[in-house]
């Protein structure tokens, strides 16, 4: 884990709290996305929000981040995969499944 972890994690939790309309204090790192009612679309939305907010890029495949991941696990994976600046063109990372 990098020394910046707490800051990255705080930021990501704050962004998720904003998306869900709850206080950041209500979200704990050991909760999974499924437990928080975050579906696959909302998870991709969170990843994009982190990219925009921290000016980072993630690869298209985010192995190790799913609805079963805890917030803490997802933070570790995302922080390890992040590269500064914008990402190349291509679909957003994650596994949004939609129809229509």
């Amino acid at each position: 884990m990098s020394a910046q972890m707490p800051q990255f994690q705080d930021r990501m939790i704050r962004l998720l709290a904003e998306q869900l309309g709850v206080d950041a204090e209500e979200l704990r790192p050991e909760q999974t996305f499924r437990e928080l009612g975050v579906d696959s679309l909302a998870l991709v939305e969170l990843v994009v929000a982190v990219e925009n907010d921290l000016d980072l890029g993630f690869p298209a495949e985010l192995d190790g981040v799913s609805r079963e991941s805890t917030l803490g696990e997802a933070c570790s994976v995302l922080e390890a995969l992040a590269v500064p600046g914008r990402t190349p063109a291509g679909p957003a990372g994650g596994e949004a499944r939609v129809e229509g």
Partner: peptide, 17 residues
Amino acid sequence: RRLADGSPRRVSPSALP
């Protein structure tokens, strides 16, 4: 603005629905 900046990957997936 994100598209114009050359960052299509930063477009929110919920923008469309």
